[in-house]
């Protein structure tokens, strides 16, 4: 529970002033791509490398990975169908697929799996909208909702709880760091 609380506090802190909107949006977009694709095919290691290399917010990337994974699970039948269309019906790519299929190294991308292919393409297509929407969302949140945050009943309840008190005390003692 404490971990959850700590994560929530961290997210709120990031949204408050912990990172620039671009850093947050970049983390969300890359985390979303990471979460959408099941397993760890080769290309995901590349995305992870980019995520760690670029100065994006890693907390938001982690949160977005969880959201992406949940979304991938919910949309699995559609993604599966989309992947099958990409692999079987796009005859123009057949030559490329065949070349990749015959290369043991590129087979590590597991591109010929319908869900891997479907989720990779869907997540990459959605990455740009997710980036811009997130950036806009952060800006709007900070401008409109942040000053009123303390007035929200949920936040008041949360701050009034014994658990939050314990968290604050532990945080001051440096235990939560």
């Amino acid at each position: 529970m404490l971990i959850l609380l700590k994560s929530l506090a961290k997210v709120l802190k990031v949204l408050k002033d912990g990172a620039t909107p671009n850093q947050i949006a970049g983390g969300v977009a890359l985390g979303f791509v990471l979460g959408m694709t099941p397993g760890w095919p080769l290309q995901m290691l590349l995305i992870l490398f980019i995520t760690l290399l670029l100065n994006v917010n890693l907390t938001m990337a982690g949160v977005a990975t969880l959201l992406g994974a949940t979304m991938g699970l919910l949309l699995d039948p559609l993604i599966n169908m989309f992947g099958r269309i990409l692999l079987q019906d796009l005859t123009a790519f057949k030559g490329l697929y065949t070349a990749m299929y015959n290369n043991p190294f590129l087979m590590l991308t597991r591109f010929n799996n319908t869900v891997v292919m479907g989720s990779l393409v869907v997540s990459l297509l959605l990455a740009a909208p997710v980036f811009f929407l997130s950036r806009r969302g952060v800006v709007v949140y900070r401008k409109k909702y942040l000053p009123k945050m303390d007035k929200f009943k949920v936040i008041q309840l949360l701050k009034g709880s014994k658990l939050y008190g314990l968290y604050v005390r532990l945080d001051r003692m440096g235990v939560m760091k």
Partner: peptide, 14 residues
């Protein structure tokens, strides 16, 4: 099962 997908085969040239 969910998230398992299907494996599509392509012509083996090598």
């Amino acid at each position: 099962a969910l998230r398992q997908g299907q494996w599509i085969s392509f012509p083996v040239t090598s």
